[in-house]
Write a protein that binds this DNA or RNA. Structure first.
Lengths: 112, 112
DNA sequence: CCCTTGATCAACTGATGTGTTGAATATAGG
DNA sequence: CCTATATTCAACACATCAGTTGATCAAGGG
């Protein structure tokens, strides 16, 4: 499954804000409306509404309709795409480190 | 090991830029100097130098000295801290989905 | 000792992000 | 119907970001 580059831009950038990360944490425990998400923060509902739009544009959340409410839902697959991207390079680095350790061990052995 | 909130801000925000992600990808294959990292991109070395500073401030890379060169090295543990953060909430969401599926299955069973 | 190379600093520009206030829209409910 | 509630839109202020050019600094090599 191809991960659009600009979607990665938006998703990682979205997580770069502590308010949006707190919203993600909240949504992991279940859906929430704009007002519910706004409650813990000392900023206006409008500002929260825009944070939500950022998360939605990043594909990290989706929204449904419940009368006049617009509940937000976390999209675990979007989070998984991010960890996959990171892990690819983390694992490559760790493999490289292990290879280098092996080489150093061999050299040390030969010096004996 | 406690992950400073502002470090998460910086690290996720750093990955929100495609040039910096490409640098991460490059560094997963081994250390590289500023000029080496700049080579693929059509922007000035100064701009690259600042991207590197952003990655370093985020804790994603470290730098050593080799004469007049300043090689960059990826820090896999920093990447791991990010996947850990994401996975916590992704896994919680998936557990919740499974619980809900179970409830729905029970209801469906009772309807028979 | 000079000149080149690798890298950074400083100042400036234009774009983007995050917050505000005030107005608008839409649904709920008496 | 009319009002309250949930949410969003629009316009603005302010800060931060990503790029530029030009100058500076430090290490190497002839």
């Amino acid at each position: 499954m191809p991960v659009d580059d600009s979607q990665l831009d938006r998703a990682f950038a979205a997580l770069g804000d502590p308010i949006r990360r707190a919203m993600i944490a909240r949504l992991s425990r279940g859906p929430a409306t704009v007002n519910e998400l706004a409650e813990p923060f000392p900023i206006t509902t409008q500002a929260i509404s825009r944070h939500i739009q950022v998360l939605e544009a990043a594909g990290l959340i989706t929204r449904t309709r419940d009368g006049q409410r617009r509940p937000c839902h976390l999209v675990p697959a979007a989070l998984e795409a991010l960890t996959s991207w990171i892990d690819e390079y983390r694992l490559e680095t760790e493999r490289r480190f292990r290879r280098m350790d092996a080489v150093l061990a061999t050299i040390k052995e030969q010096e004996k």
